[in-house]
């Protein structure tokens, strides 16, 4: 026993060093699991408040750019609305009309599956291998984990940490997050990021025989946590892989991750039900 105490006293620094390093490694390992840890993230109250203070100052410098993007988005939405209001029954084979729940003479009921909440980005990065975005909404505003985050122009990421008033989202600019994607023609692949360039993403798993031109758009699918048919980016380069007969499409993301100001957090009300069903199938 005495020898043991002497040993501990002699090597106390080394032991403390090893213990602290092991604690760090456990922390690193735990962040890669689904639960994550909410205490050590920028969603916690202290870090969130500090980022908010800073954002309150820096916010005004981006107002003009933000106005422009909001006007553009409004114009796009108006265009879409107009398309719903008037339809040509000779040309359109299927017609979509907004259905009120009080209408009893229509038989098609499409559930309002998605709920959108706005949030302001109070911290953002593009330089890490896994980039996170902190927003000024938390569980008090109804945000919860695994909700999708989109901007006016495209996809942004997925909520991973939530506190009472803040939440942080893992951006699509992350080496550990893949997003399912499709071309205009319906071919499915997935989006990866190389961890280097914030303006370049790659779409993999696309068969070689599919002709893709420069400027083709890539959209989200309903397979992922994102709502379907949200623009991801436009293709600017393709390269084919000889050995497995596939090609990689390089695309510029439609979201400008460098100056994100406002984002929408999308709640998919059917997600729990869908997850439950899918998990129950997997369990068998």
């Amino acid at each position: 026993m005495r020898n043991f105490i002497l040993f501990v006293r002699r090597f106390f620094n080394l032991i403390l060093f090893l213990v602290l390093e092991i604690v760090c490694i456990i922390l690193i390992a735990r962040t890669n699991t689904i639960q994550g840890n909410d205490i050590m993230s920028s969603a916690n109250t202290a870090a969130g408040l500090m980022y908010k203070q800073q954002n309150d100052v820096v916010y005004y410098f981006g107002l003009r750019r933000m106005n422009d993007s909001l006007v553009n988005e409004n114009a796009r939405l108006r265009l879409e609305m107009a398309a719903y209001k008037s339809f040509d029954t000779l040309r359109d084979t299927n017609v979509r009309i907004a259905i009120q729940s009080t209408d009893t003479n229509k038989h098609i009921v499409e559930y309002n599956q998605y709920f959108y909440r706005t949030a302001r980005v109070i911290n953002n990065s593009v330089t890490e291998a896994n980039n996170y975005i902190t927003i000024n909404r938390g569980s008090k505003d109804g945000i919860s984990k695994n909700m999708a985050v989109i901007s006016g122009t495209g996809i942004v990421g997925r909520i991973v940490h939530v506190s009472a008033h803040f939440a942080s989202a893992l951006s699509v600019l992350s080496v550990k997050q893949k997003v399912s994607a499709k071309l205009k023609t319906g071919e499915i692949g997935y989006i990866t990021w190389d961890g280097v360039h914030p303006d370049v993403m790659a779409m993999e798993d696309v068969p070689q025989q599919i002709k893709v031109k420069r400027g083709d758009s890539v959209f989200t699918t309903s397979y992922s946590f994102f709502p379907a048919d949200i623009l991801i980016g436009t293709v600017y380069k393709t390269s084919s892989i000889k050995k497995n007969n596939q090609q990689i499409l390089y695309l510029h993301p439609s979201t400008n991750f460098r100056n994100l100001q406002y984002v929408y957090v999308v709640e998919n009300k059917m997600m729990d039900e869908r997850k439950q069903l899918e998990d129950s199938v997997k369990a068998k």
Partner: peptide, 26 residues
């Protein structure tokens, strides 16, 4: 060691990199 750990964890908290900065700083 303790101060290094605290400094690292503080930066980790702000950058969402739990443990990485702390590991290097310790």
């Amino acid at each position: 060691l303790m101060l290094g750990f605290i400094a690292g964890i503080s930066v980790d908290t702000f950058m969402n990199t739990a443990g990485m900065h702390a590991c290097a700083t310790v």
